[in-house]
Structures are given as structure tokens and as C-alpha cells.
Amino acid sequence: MTTYEVDILHSSINFSIKHMMITKVNGVFNSFSAQIEAEQIESFKNSAIRFDLDVASVNTHDNSRDQHLISADFFNADRYPKITFIKKAVEGSCNSFKLFGDLTIKGITNPVVFDVVYTGHVTNPWNVDTYGFSCTTFINRKDFNLTYNAILEKGGFLIDENVQINVELQLNPI
């Protein structure tokens, strides 16, 4: 097994959610860590994967919204400072596969499935092997007790239940 590190400068954990039923709000978690070991990194074969996101690092480019997101109304970062993903299984081919795991938000753990695309391997200008992946999943935020909402005057809700999560990874062997 080889251990890999995430190239933080070239990786991101993003989310988007429909706002007022007409547009999407996008955000990122600026601080996260990962422990990744794999026999074959291209397909995550025989791998151990864990991600920890720092909840207080959420960034939607609106400071007041970010403060609301880390409050008890949403993530309650004081009590639950981390969001965690732990890999359980992988299925599929080496270029496109499914990554099954447990996602824990606010102390609640639910299974999720990421669609993963292996985007390639290059040797960077510093002679380090670099591997790329794009990962996507959808979750229902209510499954994690993220229930805050408001009813709009003309009907509908301020915030949708479904959240898209996109993870762009560059990995380097240690």
C-alpha cells in the first residue's frame, strides 16, 4: 500500500444548493485533511480513505451566511467541528467507479455514494507523480438534521433539501 497526500492548493470540496427555488448558492470548505492509502490509486483498489472537513471553514462568499451556517441553526460547529467521510467500498472500472462510504455531519452518520472519475496521471515539473479525480454525490440535508428553512411569501422554501457535493482531488504519493 502507498500513502497519498492531497495537494490542498489544487484540490477542493465544494457544495451547491438551490436558494429561493430559483438559483444555486455555491460554497467550499477551505480547510480539510485526508488519510489515503491504496494498492492501486487509479481505482482506489484495496484502499483506506478518510476525509475530515473543518466546519468553521465553510465559505459561501457571504460572511453573514457563513456565520449562520456554523451556528446551531445549521452545522453547530461549536459542538460538531468536523464533517467526516470514511470509505467502505469501491465498485466499477478504473476510469469511472462508485465510492461507497459513511458521511457524518452533526454526529449523524449516513451512507453516501460518490460517482468518481479518474481524470489522469502526470509527473509534475518537480518530478512528483500526480493523480486526479472528480467526485460527485447528492445528499438530503435533512438526513443530517440540517433542517433550518423559511417559507417564501409566494410559496416554496428558502433552501432546498438536496445538496450537491463535488470533490476535485490531486493526490501525490508520500
Results as ranks from 00 to 15, higher is better:
71 S>G: 08
78 D>M: 13
145 N>R: 14
130 T>I: 07
161 E>H: 08
108 I>R: 08
82 K>V: 15
103 L>N: 05
26 N>C: 01
1 M>T: 10
53 L>G: 01
124 N>D: 15
52 D>M: 14
145 N>D: 14
28 V>N: 06
115 D>E: 13
42 E>Y: 02
149 N>M: 08
165 I>S: 00
98 K>H: 04
85 F>Q: 05
93 S>M: 07
140 N>E: 02
144 F>N: 06
109 T>V: 10
72 A>W: 10
125 P>R: 11
37 E>C: 07
72 A>Q: 15
103 L>P: 03
67 Q>I: 15
163 V>M: 01
114 F>S: 03
93 S>E: 13
148 Y>L: 06
41 I>F: 04
167 V>F: 01
32 F>S: 04
53 L>A: 03
129 D>T: 06
86 I>Q: 13
106 K>P: 04
38 A>K: 04
79 R>K: 15
144 F>K: 04
87 K>A: 09
132 G>A: 05
83 I>P: 04
130 T>S: 12
77 A>F: 09
28 V>R: 12
152 L>R: 10
78 D>Y: 13
82 K>A: 10
115 D>N: 11
21 M>C: 03
61 H>V: 10
98 K>Y: 01
73 D>Y: 10
167 V>R: 03
161 E>Q: 04
129 D>E: 09
109 T>R: 11
134 S>M: 06
142 K>D: 12
103 L>F: 01
25 V>T: 11
52 D>C: 11
16 S>R: 14
62 D>C: 12
59 N>Y: 11
16 S>K: 15
56 A>I: 15
22 I>V: 15
78 D>P: 09
63 N>E: 15
26 N>F: 07
55 V>K: 06
106 K>Y: 07
142 K>I: 13
77 A>I: 14
34 A>S: 13
122 V>A: 02
150 A>E: 14
52 D>W: 08
42 E>Q: 12
35 Q>G: 08
71 S>H: 10
123 T>P: 00
84 T>F: 08
17 I>K: 00
70 I>N: 07
102 D>A: 11
9 L>P: 01
12 S>W: 02
30 N>S: 10
65 R>K: 09
